[in-house]
Write a protein that binds this DNA or RNA. Structure first.
Length: 465
RNA sequence: GUUCCCGUCGUCUAGACGGUCAGGACGCCUCUCUUUCAAGGAGGUAACGCCGGUUCGAGUCCGGCCGGGAAUACCA
């Protein structure tokens, strides 16, 4: 049996972080077992589905690098097939027409609730041996209901949660086609999973309650029941359920915030699944290790601090040239022209040790490309008398210094020694004059990258102030 | 209300068979390195929701409770 998993989002908004993790796990499971991963768009909710959302999902999957082997399939394009199956079920007696109106249903449920009962369809149109059905009313388009088994229970071995069993008595005859003939979600899923030969359904926790119904439908269809694995949800940083208000973050927000794809993937992989103590691993490793047994059943809280750490780990490992390509769009966002200064790769090499995200890296790169304004306050603090004299000398020395980090450093150290100063007494004023700030990479390295001409211009203007 | 799911450091988690000082990671704190700040190195802080039961022994098994979530739609 070859494994076939699927990701089946409904296109009602962007691909959010929870959906991304679900997709990642379903994808990894197929990869792990040499199977296929199918993308299916569940767009039967015509009211809420939009083409923009479809595009957003596709874009998100693409950024994540989660390639599907088949699809995307659209449920709206499968209507004839659903109708065909419904006709078959009507013939087979596993489904039936129900003429109860929505208003009647509401009244029924209200009455049941008033009596403290569980609201459910009472089966008034359900055919039974020896039962006389009501007369078919005029002018009502019937819905089609699934004839759910009466006794016993539905049970399955959930890949994440273990054995789950629900009594059929808890399940009523759900509607599988509306009055206008359009099929409903629980039914479409069954037909799709069946037709697409899905062997493993890895999806969100919110579908646990649908599972017994789907299993019953699948059985009525004579279909093979797939393995189900239900993932618990991801909570926001604050422990609250993710929603629009809570940065219910689209995955596409992550590249915009300067996160690397592999870092996001790694973080998501680790959020709810584990492989012993392993924290940092590649997607190749993940695909070899991933299994259902080590998925946590409980909800996970998203932790941006840890994502930042992981992202930084990845940034530190990325080649400067590659980082240059990655950070370029962020520089553009900040209106920094990277062609107006030193090669970007030299800058990223200096910065990668200290910036956890590409956005921070871009911000930190600013003074390489734009001469910083003199900061009077910092100059006053660091450009003090004993050092000032040495700095004037140093500027002269720099004119003939071989412009490499080592030689620049040697020149500074010579000046420190000659004037009996402490290292920071020269390093700090230089740092402030050259970069306009006090927290930067090693100042000799910065001067080297910036170039002699620009560096000296900045120092002179600082000394003259 | 009813059904189902979930409950280990602040956070992510390890935890086959019941016996571990309950381990790792992020964060935080301390020290260290140092050319500022980071990064790095070395330490430290901190958890089995509660109550019973079974057992020589329970995070692990059983029961109850509490807390959180989901479903109970002609949404998906």
């Amino acid at each position: 049996m070859t494994v076939r998993s699927r990701f089946a989002p409904s296109p009602t908004g962007y691909l959010h972080i929870g959906g991304a993790r679900t997709a990642l796990y379903a994808w990894a499971y197929a990869r792990r077992h040499g199977g296929q991963f199918i993308l299916r768009i569940e767009d039967t909710d015509v009211e809420r589905s939009t083409p923009e959302a479809v595009q957003a999902i596709v874009d998100g999957m693409q950024w994540l690098g989660l390639q599907h082997d088949e699809g995307p399939f659209f449920q709206m394009q499968r209507m004839p097939r659903y109708k065909e199956v419904i006709a078959q079920m009507l013939d087979a007696g596993t489904a039936y027409r129900c003429y109860t109106t929505p208003a009647e249903l509401d009244a029924l449920r209200d009455a049941q609730r008033a009596r403290g009962e569980k609201p459910r369809y009472d089966g008034r149109w359900r055919p039974e041996d020896g039962k006389t059905l009501p007369a078919v009313p005029e002018g009502i388009n019937p819905v089609i209901r699934f004839r759910n088994p009466i006794g016993g229970a539905v049970a399955w071995e959930d890949g994440v949660k273990g054995r789950i069993e629900i009594a059929n008595a808890e399940l009523d005859d759900l509607i599988i086609a509306r009055g206008d003939g359009t099929p409903t979600y629980n039914f479409c899923v069954c037909v799709d999973d069946w037709d697409m030969k899905i062997t493993h359904v890895i999806r969100g926790d919110d579908h646990v309650n649908n599972t017994p119904r789907q299993i019953n439908i699948l059985k009525a269809l004579g279909a093979e029941v797939p393995v189900y694995a239900h993932l618990s949800m991801i909570l926001g940083d604050d422990g609250q359920k993710l929603s629009k208000r809570h940065g219910a973050v689209s995955v596409m927000d992550y590249p915009a915030k300067g996160y690397l794809r592999d870092a996001v993937l790694n973080y998501l992989a680790r959020l709810g699944w584990s492989h012993g103590d392993d924290e940092v691993f590649s997607m190749e490793q993940f695909c070899q290790w991933f299994d259902l047994d080590h998925i946590t059943p409980s909800a996970a809280q998203f932790n941006t601090e840890k994502l930042n750490w992981l992202n930084h780990e990845y940034i530190k490992k990325t080649e400067p040239a590659e980082l240059a390509t990655l950070v370029a769009p962020h520089l553009a966002t900040l209106a920094i022209d990277a062609s107006s200064g030193p090669p970007l790769a030299r800058v990223t090499e200096l910065l990668r040790e200290r910036t956890p995200t590409l956005v921070e890296m871009a911000e930190a790169a600013r003074y390489f490309y734009l001469r910083p304004a003199l900061n009077a306050e910092l100059l006053k603090l660091h450009l003090v008398d004993p050092a000032k004299h040495a700095l004037y000398e140093l500027v002269n020395a720099f004119a003939s210094t071989n412009w490499t980090k080592a030689d620049i450093s040697a020149a500074i150290k010579a000046a420190v020694a000659k004037h009996a100063l402490k290292m920071p007494q020269l390093m700090m004023p230089l740092r402030v004059m050259v970069t306009g700030q006090t927290q930067t990479p090693a100042i000799d390295a910065i001067m080297d990258v910036l170039g002699r001409e620009e560096t000296l211009a900045r120092i002179k203007s600082g000394l003259a102030s």
